[in-house]
Design a protein around this nucleic acid. Structure first.
Lengths: 143, 143
DNA sequence: AACATATTCACCACATTTCCCCACTTACAC
DNA sequence: GTGTAAGTGGGGAAATGTGGTGAATATGTT
C-alpha cells in the first residue's frame, strides 16, 4: 500500500525516481493517467484494469461518454521501471500536470499521485486551511 | 491494448507512422474507417468484426441508423503496414478527418483514433474544461 | 497494339530519438 | 570508518521517424 509524501527531481529526459517502498507493488506493471486537480494518478495494473473495464463498457454513441473515455484512456500510459527505479513520464502528461524540476509523490493507499512542487504546495495550503469545513462536508458521506 | 497520445506527421504520400507499441496488435490485419467527431477509427480486424456485426444487425427501417451504418461501413478500408511501420491513409479519409501534416494518434484500448493536430487540441481543451462534470461521472461509476 | 506518361508500392537510407546500462555522489546504517 | 542503498546525470547502441528512389503497375493517347 502506498503512503507518505516524497520529493524528487524530474531530470532532463523526463524521468522521476519512485520511492523505494513503492517499487515492489509495481512489479506487475503500472499505469499513469491524467488525474484530477492537475496531478497524475499512478495505479498498479490490477487496479487499473478494473477502471479500464468500466470505461470500455460505456456507450460509443453518447458524445459525453466518448469524451470522457477519450480523456482517460488517451491520457493513460503503461510504465516500465528502469534499473534505478525510475519511470519515464510522457511529454503530454508532464505538460498536463505542469511538472518542472521539483516533484512531489504522495501515496494514497491503492494509488499514488505525482504533483509539481508548486501545485502541491498551493493545494496543501488551501486544504489545510479549510480542513475543518471539508471535514464537515465529508460527514455527509458517512465517514 | 492501445493507450496513450502520440504525435506524428503525415507525409506527402499520405503515410503515417504508427506507435511502435501498437504494431504488434495489428499483425492480424487492421481496418480504418470514418469515426465520430471528425477523426478516424482504427480497429484490429478481430475488433472490427465484432463492431461490423453489430452494425449489420441494426434496423434497416430507421433512417439515422441507416446513415450511421453507411458512414462506418462505406468508409472502411483495410490497411497494410509497411516495413517502417506506416499505414497509407486513403484520400477520402484524410479529407474527412481534415488531416494536414500534424497528426495525433490516441489509444483507446480496443481501438485507436487518428486526429488532426488542430481538431484534437480543440476537442481536448473543451473536454478538460468540463472536467468537473467528468469527476461527477467518475463518481457514478463507483471510482 | 505500342508507346509515353502517370501512379502505386516496396524498399532503402539517414538523422534523430529512445532506451538501457554505467558511474558518480550523497545519505544512512552498522 | 566502512559498506550498502538510493538519487541523479550521462554515454552509446539500437530502434524509430521521415523522406526519397526506383521498379512495377496502371492509364491514356496516337
Amino acid at each position: 500500500m502506498f503512503l507518505g509524501e516524497y520529493r524528487y527531481t524530474l531530470d532532463q529526459k523526463g524521468r522521476v525516481a519512485l520511492p523505494p517502498k513503492f517499487r515492489n507493488d509495481l512489479k506487475g506493471g503500472a499505469i499513469v493517467t491524467r488525474g484530477l486537480d492537475q496531478c497524475l494518478f499512478v495505479f498498479p495494473s490490477v487496479e487499473w484494469k478494473i477502471l479500464a473495464q468500466k470505461l470500455v463498457s460505456l456507450p460509443l454513441t453518447q458524445s459525453n461518454s466518448r469524451a470522457f473515455v477519450r480523456l482517460m484512456l488517451s491520457g493513460a500510459m503503461d510504465l516500465s521501471i528502469d534499473k534505478q527505479g525510475r519511470i519515464l513520464v510522457p511529454d503530454y502528461l508532464r505538460e498536463y500536470a505542469g511538472l518542472q524540476k521539483e516533484i512531489v509523490t504522495i501515496g494514497l493507499y491503492s494509488r499514488f499521485e505525482i504533483w509539481s512542487d508548486n501545485n502541491w504546495n498551493k493545494y496543501k495550503k488551501i486544504t489545510e486551511r479549510d480542513s475543518d469545513k471539508i471535514a464537515e462536508q465529508l460527514n455527509e458521506l458517512g465517514i
